[in-house]
Design a protein around this nucleic acid. Structure first.
Lengths: 143, 143
DNA sequence: TTAATTGCAAACACTTTGCACGCTA
DNA sequence: TAGCGTGCAAAGTGTTTGCAATTAA
């Protein structure tokens, strides 16, 4: 994602475009998997050394509010994890050992929700599914 | 669950039986659904006013280690949630409106986990599924 | 120009830890 | 009685906030 697009995303969402926000958004958009505020801060610092952690938190907050970023409240660690919101329904598969998170698209729950709705009378509007275990790398190292 | 059983559970798990631990375990075993350390502390304080929050945390830690209690790392809030480990696999269906929680036994994910394990190379050991929506009563009231 | 944004440090909320005392096995 | 468990206060984390200086529109 290039600088032009980042500034566009900000203006489309009525967010004032600052150097810090562009850098932070750029960093997030290049993440391979959901990551912590602290790590996003360290990555952003490489591009703009003067950036502060509170600016990162404030940017993450506004991006999340606007739906540009997903704030993952379900992480296995104590830290919240952030990622670009692709608007695709997905689930997470976390490694208990190295804490890396794999994003899994697609969802096995549609039928189940219908069935459960009939059984319980609930209107089901949302679900969160988080799986965890050991990734291929950690399985090898621990065996 | 009576006092006798609680002391038994502790000794079976080679945990020294103290008044505080019995009280804390008793409180947890009577929870209707997962709850916070803070709330468990307040409930325990009703039975033993001298109990301290750090003792609650230390008890929760050892109970979790021994598998007597489940520590829910995926809670929606910032706080970790604890519940007695019944060893019965279950999910939760929460009403967004009245916040009641329905416990749902049975699980639609076995096949999916196998498939995902093949796809990703992960050894999947656990999952958490939380559904939410509107219960029959609130559906009526809100329509 | 001027209101929003920033960096800094201090405050916060939840959890963990060091220590002297007390209690269980 | 030996050593683990406890209460207390202090320290640790991750995150949020108040404020004066800076910057984008």
């Amino acid at each position: 994602m290039n600088k032009k697009n980042l500034a566009d995303i900000l203006s489309e969402n009525k967010i004032k475009s600052t150097k810090q926000r562009r850098v932070i958004l750029s960093v997030i958009s290049e993440l391979k998997y959901p990551d912590t505020a602290e790590h996003i801060y360290l990555l952003a610092k490489k591009e703009d050394d003067s950036i502060s952690l509170s600016t990162v938190y404030r940017a993450l907050e506004i991006f999340t509010e606007k739906g540009i970023v997903n704030k993952n409240e379900f992480s296995l660690s104590d830290k919240k994890m952030y990622e670009i919101n692709t608007k695709v329904h997905k689930h997470y598969l976390t490694c208990n050992s190295c804490k890396k998170i794999l994003t899994v698209e697609g969802c096995p729950l549609e039928e189940y929700e219908k069935k459960l709705s009939l059984q319980t009378g609930f209107e089901i509007t949302e679900h969160h599914l988080n799986l965890s275990g050991y990734c291929p790398k950690c399985r090898l190292e621990n065996s």
